[in-house]
């Protein structure tokens, strides 16, 4: 049952470079060692060691409750805002220890942007104000800078052409897919090194989903992307690297294996990975 049919998941032209990359894995943008997360007395994730390669898309896959989102949110210290949550182990952004006591979490979050499952533009702000909110609310006032940032972020999110004439209208007037691209633009405007995406297309229709997937392939040239997805085909289509997490009866969420997406989907090392990617579990 090894997956020749799985090959059909891959878009024909998407990653011709990736195969050649097998021996030259890029330097990590984010390194995690012994990462675990505890909510109150309940351990949700434990012992994750992994490198997220720079300038690549890494997909986190696995069945519900395996800790994909928990892992993602520990990278930008978003668990800080959850009462009772404790992150164990270490996360490094380049050489920077993300959880070092002297580190200001807001700086980390400006360098590691995030896009959520449901599009969450600020409802009271216009399209323009949404895009520049991360800059403006961090004290940048110069019109010229804000305008430049807004245009380039919207260009990167493939939204500029459709909204450039109505920047001052409410973000809520956009369609779901456009709202999600606006959220991507808003995250990009802060010029992050890494972009975390938590099932960014699960609330979108197939056309909007495919637009975002295309966008991700274009974006990865400028920013490292880590994406959580429930959709195996999506992981196969967009990611360069793939990490499979799992929760088992006697073991909390943990990393089973990670590697090149092609390899994970065609000849995974662990039988559980194979069962999952071929749809027999999860």
């Amino acid at each position: 049952m090894t997956g020749t049919p799985l090959k059909t998941f891959f878009a024909p032209d998407s990653r011709s470079t990736v195969a050649a990359e097998a021996e030259a894995r890029p330097a990590p943008a984010i390194t995690v060692r012994g990462l675990g997360v505890r909510f109150g007395s309940k351990l949700a994730l434990s012992g994750v060691d992994m490198d997220f390669p720079t300038g690549r898309i890494t997909a986190l896959i696995g069945p519900s409750g395996c800790g994909k989102t928990t892992l993602l949110r520990s990278l930008n210290r978003l668990h800080d805002t959850t009462p009772g949550a404790r992150v164990l182990g270490s996360v490094h952004l380049g050489d920077l220890d993300v959880y070092a006591p002297e580190i200001n979490p807001t700086e980390i979050r400006a360098r590691i942007g995030m896009v959520f499952q449901r599009p969450n533009p600020f409802p009271t702000l216009s399209i323009y104000d949404n895009v520049v909110s991360g800059l403006r609310l961090n004290g940048i006032r110069k019109k010229a800078i804000l305008n430049d940032a807004a245009e380039s972020a919207l260009q990167s999110a493939a939204l500029w052409d459709s909204v450039s004439h109505k920047l001052k209208t409410s973000a809520m007037r956009l369609s779901g897919g456009e709202q999600q691209r606006l959220c991507i633009a808003r995250a990009l405007a802060v010029e992050p090194d890494v972009l975390l995406m938590d099932e960014p297309t699960s609330a979108l229709d197939p056309i909007a989903t495919s637009r975002i997937e295309t966008l991700l392939r274009a974006l990865v040239k400028q920013v490292t992307i880590i994406i959580v997805t429930h959709n195996m085909q999506q992981a196969a289509r967009v990611s360069d690297y793939c990490a499979f997490l799992m929760v088992e009866e006697d073991r909390v969420g943990h990393l089973v294996e990670e590697g090149l997406t092609l390899q994970i989907f065609s000849k995974p090392a662990d039988p559980r990975t194979e069962e999952y990617v071929t749809g027999r579990i999860g």
Partner: peptide, 13 residues
């Protein structure tokens, strides 16, 4: 959502 959106942009609480 809105809180998280703001926090995740690196804006102070």
């Amino acid at each position: 959502d809105l809180w998280e959106a703001g926090i995740a942009l690196g804006i102070r609480r």
